[in-house]
Nucleic acid binder design. Structure first.
Lengths: 123, 123
DNA sequence: CTGGAATTACGATGTTCCTCGTACAATGAA
DNA sequence: TTCATTGTACGAGGAACATCGTAATTCCAG
């Protein structure tokens, strides 16, 4: 645990955001990442947007630290990709990777989410 | 908590196995039920069998009580239906309900599981 | 009625998860 | 450099989960 101040050479700003490689993504972990209403909402927003979204663009009724947590779960399980853009951190679905690994899966989940939302009158 | 001996009229053998009604099944809960390797295996076996299966027919590398636990999670989240057949308890996918609620979802998950199994050389 | 086979219930344990609040770090603008 | 914005790290509390072993329940067959 490096409690010491980072050495001058360390570019702490560019923290390495660890993403699993495509071949390391596991179905059970993807499903687990999707099996939470908050995270499902995030994924739906990202899918609807068709672009990267700032964390702040996706309003969640939870605290910011909780928000960070959910985004991390999505990233660590291979569902989204996160990159820094200046002061913000942009999020995007890993559509290509997921489609290559599990064709149709994400679309199926998204469609199911839409249907349920319609049925329950929620968002 | 009825610790007393069941009255004569109570047919304890036919314990009411509680299943959620179709309209109470939630996507996030279904995904959660599927987001476990053991349970995913159960669902794949049931889907491949096209019939009811005894718990004992689905071999899992865990203890019997753990097995019971997983089957219960699947049932309580609306993925399978369980009924007693004499001394055994039969399990079947709730294909109709799931297809009505989330068309294509289960198939998508099953296909994804197949692909991953092929890719990883596992079962 | 007694035994055997199948499964559950119960209790325990250790782990993971969701949530929060507070303090800190990094970037861009004034 | 200072400030505002944005997001992270850390620690903690409470709930849920996965797993087990043992005891109890239920049904069918002698």
């Amino acid at each position: 645990m490096p409690t010491e101040t980072p050495s001058a050479g360390t570019v702490t700003g560019a923290r390495a955001l660890e993403h699993p490689r495509r071949e390391d993504i596991r179905l059970a972990e993807v499903l687990h990442a999707l099996a939470d209403p908050m995270r499902l909402r995030v994924v739906r927003r990202l899918a609807a947007a068709h672009t990267e979204l700032n964390c702040a663009d996706i309003e969640l009724p939870v605290s910011r630290s909780t928000c960070t947590h959910h985004f991390r779960v999505l990233r660590e399980n291979g569902v989204i990709q996160q990159i820094y853009r200046g002061t913000a951190k942009m999020n995007a679905l890993r559509t290509e990777d997921l489609e290559a690994l599990f064709p149709g899966l994400i679309d199926g989940v998204l469609r199911a989410a839409e249907l349920q939302a319609d049925r329950l009158g929620e968002d």
